[in-house]
Each structure stands twice: as structure tokens, then as C-alpha cells.
Computed example of a mutant assay.
Amino acid sequence: MAAIQFRVRLVAAEGPILEEILDATYAIWSEGLTRDNYARWNAAQMRTAWGKDHLRRFALVDDRGRWVASAKRYLLPMRLDGVDGVMCGLGAVFTRREERGRGYAGEIINQLIDRSRGEGATVAGLFSEIGEELYRRLGFVTVPMDEVDIEVDRKHGAPAMLVRSGEERDLPALASMHTKRTEGVPLRFALRRDPALIEYALSKKRLLAGLGFGPGPRGARQTEFFVAEEGASAAAYVVLTVSAGGWTLEEAGDRDPAGARLGAILQVLLAREPSRPAPLIRAWWPRLMPVPPQLRLTNRIPARDIFMLRPIENVRIPDRADDVFYWRSDYF
């Protein structure tokens, strides 16, 4: 690896620099959007109530005023070993093509971690699409998580339960369900998901589906959010991404310790088209999340998107899937 040739400084990626970065990264992370809609999707995420305070894109700029690397930085509230803290989430790490092999990816990661330490972060995290080796050299450790297929019992038809579309007023109930599942249990790491963070995760997926609507398999992608009520509030819910390839269960919750209402929601949704074969349903299913009696988890494998953490302060990194509670919805 060649040494860094020029001094570099960390700046917010804005204006012409941001446009160049979007041009360079469009082919990798556009998710089937047009170039204009890729820019709109990124900008809209940062304008959400949660994103405007917790999400920024940065660039490394050299002495010539030229950007050489970029990354998104998220400040995510989390709990590690019973202590509330902040995770510096790192996403879309990218080095300008002609500058690769000079260590700029590691430099921007290290500078963002140093910056986040001053903002209260005790751990840094990322999802790797390029394997583990590069990030291991930078001090990251792989955190195991599971990916599963979900089979839903359809033998007895749909239960007599009202399922409706989720709304903004349901978000506090969703946050409460998550807190109940992740506090006071033998669990080492989980996000602290408040209504604003849940709304951000939903908005990100809805924006992607809306901006990408059109011909082609990705243009048929939809985000569906359903709840079952008890009284006047949500008692169980699911968030799904529906596409030509099947369903992805992005997140779910149930006030019922056994999860029976969650299972019933999925039965109701499948009963909308009773004559069609059940779609393939995939999920990251946290091991401490109860499996509803109507569901069966099969084909368990390590999650294909590799989750890695690096300590910033004196903390221990979880090393078992049993220790982590994390939904696909919070991928960054």
C-alpha cells in the first residue's frame, strides 16, 4: 500500500464535492434509482427528524482541494452491557478510484471515529460488503447475526383479527415493544430505538420504493407497515419490503410474550391471496425474539451483510449471535 501523499482534512460533503461523490458512488449504491432520484433519496434521509441531527456525509480533502474518500457517519443510540451510549455508524465508505491503495479508507474511518469520540461515541460499527479483512486491520471485530427463512402456517386460514396499515401515531408503541424486548434480558448489544429512529428507518425504505417505482424488478418494490390493535394502540406490527424476489421482514414486534399476534398478522397478509404460493420470506431474526407459534424459522445462516464493531472506549465487543438484538431495518 502506497503512503498518503498529501495532507488531508475532514469536511462535510456538500455542494460540488457532494455531487462528485454521488456521481462516483451511483453505480454501487443507487438501488436501481436514476441518478437524480439517487441524489433525492440521499438528501431526503438527511432531512428527516432523526437524520438531520444524526446523519452526515463527510469527505477527505487533500491539499489540492480535491476529495479523495467519503463516508456517511451515523450517531446511533445503543446499549452495550447495560450501559446507554452512542455508536458511530460508518456507511458508504468509498475511495476515489485513482486514489485507491493509499490508505484513505482507513484514514477517513479513523478521523470519523476520533470525531465521534468527542461526541460521546463508545463504539464504532459498520456493515461490510467486501469481507472482513480490511476492517479487521482497522480494529473491527465481526459480530455474528442470523439470517433465516420464515415459514408461516396456512393450514387453518387467516385468524379473525383486524390488521390495518401502520401510522405515525403507532411509533411510540413500536418503540415501547422494542424497549421491552431488549431491557432487563441477558443481552449485550441493541439499539435504543425511539420513535424518531423508527420513523427514519421507515422513511428510508418508503422513499426508496417511491423514487424507484417503475418498470423492472426493483421498480415493483414496496414497503408495507401493518399493525394489530388492542384498545386504541398497536399491540403487534410488521414492516416488510415486498419485491419480485419475495418478502423481507425488516422488523417486527409484539406485546404478547409469545408473539402470537405477530404470527397472526403474517397469516392475515398471506390470506390476501390464498391461491398463490407463499412468497420466500427472509429476515434477520434476533435470537432473543420469541418465534410465534404460527411460524417456523428455517435455513439459518450467518447474515450475508457482515456486522462489525470496534471499541472506541474501554468496552468489550459481543462475540455471539445470542448477545445481539438487531433488525434488518437498521442496516446502514
Rank of each mutant, 00 (worst) to 15 (best):
G253E: 01
S203D: 13
V268T: 02
D319N: 07
P257V: 06
S30Y: 11
E98C: 11
F226N: 03
R206G: 09
G91Y: 13
L138H: 01
Y135A: 01
A173I: 12
F332Y: 06
K72H: 15
T223P: 00
R137Q: 04
D36R: 13
R188I: 03
V152C: 07
L262E: 03
L288A: 13
A228M: 00
R164P: 07
F189G: 04
E119L: 05
P277E: 14
T25I: 09
A232S: 10
L266K: 00
D53F: 14
A69D: 06
V239D: 08
R35T: 11
A190L: 04
V8K: 11
L266M: 03
R154P: 08
A264F: 07
W284C: 13
Y104P: 00
A201I: 09
D146G: 12
R304C: 13
A190I: 02
L162T: 12
F94P: 06
G212Y: 01
A59L: 01
A27Q: 05
K205H: 14
V68L: 08
P311A: 02
K180A: 15
N299S: 14
S329C: 08
L187D: 03
A59F: 03
V8D: 13
L270H: 04
Q5G: 12
Y326V: 06
A252D: 04
T142A: 06
S70K: 04
G125A: 10
